[in-house]
């Protein structure tokens, strides 16, 4: 799992929550997989361990992860990857729609543009 935080982009604990969800949605973290410890993740990101702990509590409350006593924090087996994917997709869609609206175009025009670029999107984008 690769996470990034940017102190200029809103609360760090929210960014960690979003980052873990995105990792699950992309399949970088699988159901049942163990997350790095709060301390390890804090060290890697150079953030306050309290902040990571707060993010982990949030993930647990949302039913994304669970803490097994003495073992660590794990992605729940029943985590809904489809729902997480959808949530991420909607976020990206909102950003895209906003960009379209700034050009004075509506959702329909935006959707048409998506289909227009779709055939070659796969070949042009590096994976």
């Amino acid at each position: 799992m690769r996470l990034r935080v940017d102190p200029e982009a809103g609360p760090i604990f929210e960014q960690i929550v979003a980052g873990v969800k995105a990792a699950i949605a992309r399949g970088e973290l699988s159901p049942g997989e163990k997350l790095p410890s709060a301390r390890t993740l804090a060290e890697e990101l150079k953030v306050n361990p309290n902040t990571v702990i707060r993010a982990f509590l949030d993930l647990e409350r949302e039913g994304i992860t669970e803490t097994r006593r003495g073992l660590g924090t794990f992605v729940r087996e029943d985590v809904d990857q489809t729902a997480l994917k959808h949530e991420l997709l909607l976020t990206a869609a909102r950003r895209y729609l906003k960009a379209a609206k700034e050009l004075g175009l509506d959702a329909k025009a935006a959707a048409r543009a998506l289909l227009e670029v779709e055939p070659d999107a796969g070949s042009k984008q590096p994976t």
Partner: peptide, 14 residues
């Protein structure tokens, strides 16, 4: 509090 600041869209640096 740093996270409160970020909630308002600001960083400590700013």
């Amino acid at each position: 509090l740093a996270e409160e600041l970020r909630k308002e869209g600001k960083s400590v640096v700013e």
